[in-house]
Amino acid sequence: MYGHDTARDVYRQALPVILVSLIAGLFAGTILGSEQMREGIESVPGILLLLPAFLATRGGVYGSLGARLSTGLHQGIIEPNFELDPRLTNAVVASFINGMAVSVFIAVITFAVLAILGGGGNLLELVGIMVIAGLLSAILMLTVLISVIFIGYRHGLDPDNVIGPVVTTLGDVFGIAFLLVGIYAMGILL
C-alpha cells in the first residue's frame, strides 16, 4: 500500500534519480568552477546574474517539448519517425522560438538589473552571449531529446521517464559549456 511505504522504501526509490542529478550537477559545477569560466565571469559583468535564469529556461523549454512529444506519442497522433510531420515540426519550431525569445529576454532583464545595481554591463555583449548559448543549446537539445524519445519509444521505453534525466543532465552541463563558448565568441567579435 502506498501509504505504508517506510522512510527506507522512499529513500531507496528516490536515490538513483537524485544521484543522476547530483553527478550532472557536479559536471556542470566543474565547468562553472574552471579557470576559463572564472575568467569569463570576471570579464563580463552579469554572467552570474543571468546563470540561474538561463539554466532554468533550458529545463522549461526542452522539458515541455519532451512532455508534449511524449503525450503525442501516447495519444498516437505523432509517430516515432524522423519525418517532416507537421505536428512534430510545429513543436520543434515553437521550442526553438521559445528558447531564443527567452534567451534574449534574459539578456535584457540582466542588463536592466545590472543598471539598477549600479551600472556596468554591455547590452550587445549580453544579448550576443545569450543568442549564441541559446542557439547551440537548441541544436544540441532538440537533436538529442527527439532521438532519445523516439528511439527509446520504439524500444518500449516510456518517454515520460526519460525526459527528466535527459533534460537535467544535458541541459545543465551543456548550458554552462555553451555559455562559455558564447563569452569567448563575443570576446572575439567585440
Partner: peptide, 13 residues
C-alpha cells in the same frame, strides 16, 4: 539547473 528541468517537465504536463 538540474531540477528546473524536472520541475518544468511537470509544469509542462
Amino acid at each position: 539547473m538540474s531540477s528546473p528541468g524536472d520541475n518544468l517537465t511537470g509544469l509542462a504536463d
